[in-house]
Simulated assay, not measured.
Amino acid sequence: MNENEIVMIATFPNIPEENVAAFTAAVAESLDAVRTEKGNLQYDWFMDDDRSRCVVLERYRDAAAVVEHVGNVAEVLPRLAQLGGGVEIDVLGTLPADLHAALESRVRAIHGLVAGK
């Protein structure tokens, strides 16, 4: 991870069985919304075996790419959170002060880069 990249790990912790079909449809909608993001380097969705928990691994080129992404998923993210029992977001990377402040209310934790290869 370079010093400009930002990684986000979003977890939808409790997807009721009756919400799985609607949740996966909203996932497809989210993927469609971000397909043109040039600064989105990774956007992979993982579900556990019983499809009750979903983890999204996201990696962005820089803070500007995160801002673009947040705008693109603004409509679908509340629905995903509602269907998935909430959303917990961890951010890994050094954020500019304005983006840190903007994301702080939406995320569980923001971890600045200390060292890396």
Rank of each mutant, 00 (worst) to 15 (best):
N2L: 08
N4T: 10
E5I: 02
E5P: 00
E5C: 02
I6H: 04
V7C: 14
M8R: 14
I9V: 15
I9S: 15
I9F: 12
A10I: 04
A10R: 07
T11Q: 08
T11Y: 00
N14F: 02
N14C: 03
I15L: 05
P16I: 03
E17Q: 08
E17M: 01
E17R: 03
E18I: 05
A21P: 00
T24H: 07
A25N: 10
A26T: 12
V27E: 01
A28Q: 11
A28F: 06
A28N: 03
E29S: 12
L31S: 11
L31R: 09
L31F: 05
D32Q: 14
A33C: 05
T36K: 13
Y43L: 09
Y43R: 07
Y43K: 02
D44E: 10
D44F: 01
D44Y: 01
D44K: 06
W45N: 08
W45C: 04
W45T: 09
F46N: 06
D49F: 07
D49Y: 04
D50F: 02
R51P: 01
R51D: 03
R51L: 11
R51Y: 12
C54M: 02
C54T: 01
V55D: 07
V55E: 13
L57D: 04
L57A: 08
E58Q: 08
E58D: 07
E58R: 00
D62Q: 09
D62Y: 02
A63D: 01
A64G: 13
A64F: 04
A64T: 13
V66N: 06
V67S: 12
E68Y: 11
H69R: 05
H69K: 07
V70K: 11
G71N: 09
G71P: 12
V73K: 11
E75R: 15
E75D: 15
E75A: 15
P78M: 15
P78I: 15
P78G: 15
R79I: 12
R79Y: 07
L80Q: 04
L80H: 05
G84D: 10
G84E: 10
G86V: 10
G86F: 14
V87S: 06
E88K: 13
D90H: 06
V91M: 02
L95F: 03
A97W: 11
D98M: 13
D98K: 14
H100E: 11
H100C: 01
A101C: 04
E104H: 08
E104P: 00
V107F: 00
R108E: 03
R108W: 00
A109H: 11
A109W: 12
I110A: 08
I110Y: 12
I110C: 08
H111K: 13
G112S: 13
L113P: 00
